[in-house]
């Protein structure tokens, strides 16, 4: 079980974006994926979701993946309620005539976990940036996800919204779940997660967070002064 990534490489138009990435996670791991812009952080998540072609091996076993992309629409110009979005998180590829009682229960759990239960009738277009992020995370949770992939979920949020989101993640995070979260905010390393993967096309560090923080100066030195 867990998540295994072996010899993962991705190329875009002949250019390597990820080269020979190896790591494995077990249940109870909360991995922070670090690296500068263009280091391949988002690409790594997209490969795990299966959105882009790659070479190498990715095994997610029986985990249900919940994925929240970095780009979420800034404004939604037509009326959709939070509840309608989160319920749609229970959909699979198959046709669906109506949501079952179980779907509705899972959606309520996801709304509770993201602190949005009292805002479920609100339109997505009327939410704050932080609430909208959480609504998208609730959508991912409603698929009964136990492998959560979050691509810079706190980008563009103010401090209070960030803290609310940290709380949501820490609540969701359990012994039987795996979270991969892309971030480029060094402060988040101290607040969230227990493992770190630092990449710049290749993996520069993979291991416990404590180990990474202990060698922080060396690692940050690497990031600040390439070549």
């Amino acid at each position: 079980m867990g998540l295994i990534v072996k010899n993962l490489s991705v190329t875009y138009g002949g250019e390597p974006v990820l080269e020979d990435i190896n790591f494995s996670l077990k249940e109870g791991d909360f991995l922070l994926v670090l690296g500068k812009n263009g280091a391949g952080k988002s690409t790594l998540l997209k490969a795990i979701v299966g959105e882009i072609p790659y070479s190498g091996m990715i095994k997610t076993f029986n985990h249900k993946i919940g994925y929240v992309a970095q780009k979420i629409p800034g404004t939604i110009r037509f009326p959709v309620t939070v509840e309608e979005l989160v319920l749609a998180g229970t959909l699979k590829g198959k046709p669906k005539l109506s949501y079952s009682k179980e779907d509705r229960e899972v959606a309520v759990e996801a709304l509770k976990a993201t602190n949005l239960l009292n805002k479920r009738k609100k339109l997505l277009g009327n939410l704050s940036g932080g609430e909208l992020r959480r609504a998208f995370i609730a959508r991912a949770l409603a698929g009964k996800a136990d492998l959560l992939l979050l691509d810079e979920p706190t980008s563009g949020l103010d401090q209070m919204s960030r803290e609310e989101l940290y709380q949501v993640l820490n609540t969701f995070f359990r012994e039987d779940t795996i979270i991969l979260m892309v971030t480029h905010d060094p402060k988040e390393i101290k607040i969230l997660g227990n493992k770190v993967l630092h990449i710049d096309k290749k993996a520069l560090y993979f291991g416990d967070k404590d180990g990474y923080l202990a060698g922080e100066e060396r690692e940050l030195g690497f990031e600040c002064c390439p070549e």
């Binding site: 299966g50 959105e51 992309a69 979420i72 629409p73 979005l85 749609a88 699979k92 991912a140 698929g143």
Partner: peptide
């Protein structure tokens, strides 16, 4: 609303 999420759900 969420094309990337929809794809990840197998839609």
């Amino acid at each position: 609303v969420d094309p990337a999420g929809a794809k990840s759900q197998g839609i």
